[in-house]
């Protein structure tokens, strides 16, 4: 049941569309707050193990491909920009542009995953694997598997957020193409924008912590 933006009414337990919008936005911020705490566990584990094994982390980090990581950082920042454009064009009633920017964001996210796929398969190939599956012989520290446990868990959980985000983008594209968003109703686009910037921000922390230990 597609409702075109201009005909949309706010839910009856809110006083106005504005009331519903600010409430939804507060809910999204709270959701992101719990996301921060979710990732915090991983960052704390990283901090503790790095403090205990500085040399191992340094050596293991050298095995990551900085160029690929840097490329993905640029790709994600660009996708954040196109997402911001998507929100802006929804706010200003440029529905076609909204759809277009959402599709571009989706494509950039796909590029991110493709790059990640090549990185992962290289690691699998040379035995740079988590914990008990670690078989690489270049790294001599017996605890090196821990670094790759953290690498795969942190980038993996982040990648999962990217994949879930892409599914939401597809849903937004569908709704946008039915003219469901416009200047008086763009809540889902704006809220998803917040989520997408958050996922981008997590990567901006992951990249130096994992790739740039020097």
């Amino acid at each position: 049941m597609a409702i075109v933006a201009s005909e949309r009414k706010h839910s009856e337990h809110f006083n106005s569309a504005e009331h519903e919008f600010v409430s939804s936005k507060q809910g999204m911020w709270l959701f992101l707050l719990q996301e921060v705490l979710f990732f915090a566990g991983l960052f704390v584990a990283y901090g503790i193990f790095r403090a205990l094994n500085p040399e191992m982390f340094h050596a293991a980090s050298q095995m990551l491909d900085v160029k690929m990581g840097a490329l993905n950082t640029v790709v994600l920042i660009c996708s954040s920009l196109t997402m911001a454009f998507a929100v802006r064009s929804a706010q200003t009633n440029q529905t076609k542009k909204t759809t277009m920017y959402l599709i571009v964001t989706f494509l950039l996210a796909s590029v991110f995953l493709v790059v990640k796929y090549f990185e992962y398969s290289h690691k699998f190939h040379v035995g740079l694997l988590p914990g008990q599956y670690f078989t690489n012989t270049e790294l001599t520290d017996p605890k090196s598997g821990l670094f790759f446990s953290l690498y795969f868990m942190m980038t993996g959980v982040h990648g999962l957020h990217i994949i879930l985000g892409m599914l939401v983008i597809l849903w937004l594209v569908r709704r946008s193409s039915r003219n469901e968003f416009g200047s008086n109703y763009y809540t889902p686009v704006e809220l998803f924008g917040l989520y997408w910037h958050f996922v981008d921000l997590i990567w901006i922390y992951l990249f130096p912590l994992l790739y740039l230990i020097d």
């Binding site: 979710f38 991983l42 193990f49 988590p130 914990g131 008990q132 821990l146 868990m153």
Partner: peptide, 22 residues
Amino acid sequence: ATPVLAITLFLLIFERLTGIGI
């Protein structure tokens, strides 16, 4: 607090399934 438990249990599941060793 709950998200911290969530990530802990998530890691524990992977600990059991793939031996990440954390």
